[in-house]
Amino acid sequence: MRSLQPILYAEDDANDRELTLAALKEANISNRIEVVCDGQEALDFLNYEGHFADRRKENPVLILLDIKMPRLDGLQVLEEIKKHEELSKIPVVMLTSSSMETDLIKSYEMGANSFVVKPVDFEEFYDAVKKLGIYWALLNKTV
């Protein structure tokens, strides 16, 4: 059986990472989660550069991007992804800690597929990620 394509998850905040991963685990998403700590690393992963020069040749099935990150932020990464012919087909979900409209509008304008406001309430966030996971997992199987 061919192993499932990974989910790329870019997040600079360690605590957020831990909490998000915990939520994904709860959602029974069996895809491997590739975690990077900022936008630059996310692009390096996608382009097989830097630390990721030798990784296996496969594109992630889903990209989760935190909007606010040091160096390159989520929007800048999204911009780069959408410029790339092959990568632009990968669904991108933006994660944001605020519901500030400007960020959401910008994300959609730039071609984000969805977004999740990182809720202060863990349960909400858990539900959102769980639903997303199921949806994308199903989508993946039909391809």
Partner: peptide
Amino acid sequence: SYSISHDLRAPLRHINGFSKL
């Protein structure tokens, strides 16, 4: 103001999340 709304939520979120865990 962006930072305040954005960054001050983070620790709050963490407190909430880790408390539940």
